[in-house]
């Protein structure tokens, strides 16, 4: 056990945590409580006065078929994004682990996309796949695929998932590479001697030992897909066509800032907050149990 630090001054410990507390209070608890307060009120069209309405906003939001649609879209989008981002990153990390020469260079290249801002990442994908001007759109049309994400909701979804995953792959890659490096080489060698071929070794030794990394990334990636993908969706599809790519976060923005229904928007934020807390709690409670920390 590490020895406990004892502060001679009673005030000092509080002073040391004060900046952290201040940041959390100002940037999380304050807006969160504002949202909570607003979600219980209804504002008149001119924003002059608000009126307490209890849970009416919540009832309205949950009864709205558009909201249920956004919920479905979010689930599909998040699961797909987290899965694609992690699976591709893992594949790349496993391959990078085998690279002998130019390892550092290869890894550096892999990490660059993370430095690209979400909106710009979205624009990149939009340009590449735009039906009228996109390079890849032309390629796909030449291959006989009727590519038009502006009309086809499934294609639009595929495009935002691809763009959102692409952005996150670098981050996941970095963690998977570190996770792979932490697995002692002798374990892999022992498994090889024990008669396990490469694929078998991966699924019976490497993948289970990566579980702590995978679990951490699962939490991070679902949270990312839920919250941090607004910029990409905004740039690529704007939630359309129809509402095929309108996620919960995008709807909060749409209702609050575009349609200015602040009460609904606030209620949605609160629900979103509850969902993420629940999701993370479930992940820690049920998924983490299967994780073996070496």
């Amino acid at each position: 056990m590490t020895p406990r630090v004892v502060f001679p001054n009673k005030l000092l410990p509080y002073l040391l945590v004060a900046p952290q507390l201040a940041i959390t209070l100002i940037f999380f608890y304050w807006p969160a409580s504002q949202a909570l307060q607003q979600s219980l009120q209804r504002e008149d069209p001119f924003g002059l006065k608000s009126q307490f309405v209890g849970l009416a906003n919540f009832r309205k939001v949950l009864a709205d078929p558009n909201y249920i649609n956004a919920l479905q879209v979010t689930v599909i989008f998040s699961v797909a994004t987290a899965f694609v981002a992690m699976a591709v990153a893992l594949l790349l990390a496993v391959q990078a682990d085998k690279v002998v020469r130019g390892k550092g260079f290869y890894r550096t290249l892999m990490i660059w996309p993370y430095a690209v801002a979400p909106a710009i990442a979205g624009m990149l994908w939009l340009f590449l796949f735009s039906p009228s001007i996109g390079t890849f759109a032309v390629l796909m049309r030449n291959l006989g695929i009727a590519w038009d994400p502006l009309l086809n909701g499934n294609q639009a979804m595929a495009l935002v998932v691809a763009a959102a995953s692409w952005k996150q792959i670098s981050y996941n890659f970095l963690f998977f590479v570190a996770g792979l490096q932490a697995i002692p080489k002798s374990l892999i060698e022992a498994a090889a001697i024990d008669g396990a071929r490469e694929t078998k070794r991966f699924w019976t030794i490497v993948f289970p030992l990566l579980a702590p990394t995978t679990f951490f990334l699962l939490v991070i990636n679902t949270t990312y897909a839920f919250f941090d993908t607004f910029g990409i969706i905004h740039a690529v599809t704007g939630g359309g066509p129809g509402k095929a790519t309108e996620t919960l976060v995008y709807k909060v923005y749409n209702d609050g800032f575009v349609n200015l229904v602040l009460g609904d928007s606030a209620a949605q934020s609160v629900i979103l907050m509850v969902i993420v807390i629940a999701l993370t709690a479930v992940q820690f409670r049920y998924v983490e149990r299967k994780v073996h920390y070496g």
Partner: peptide, 13 residues
């Protein structure tokens, strides 16, 4: 062949 490693290389999971 079978090998015993210096660090044993037991599968921790």
């Amino acid at each position: 062949i079978a090998m015993v490693f210096q660090n044993y290389a037991l599968y921790p999971h």
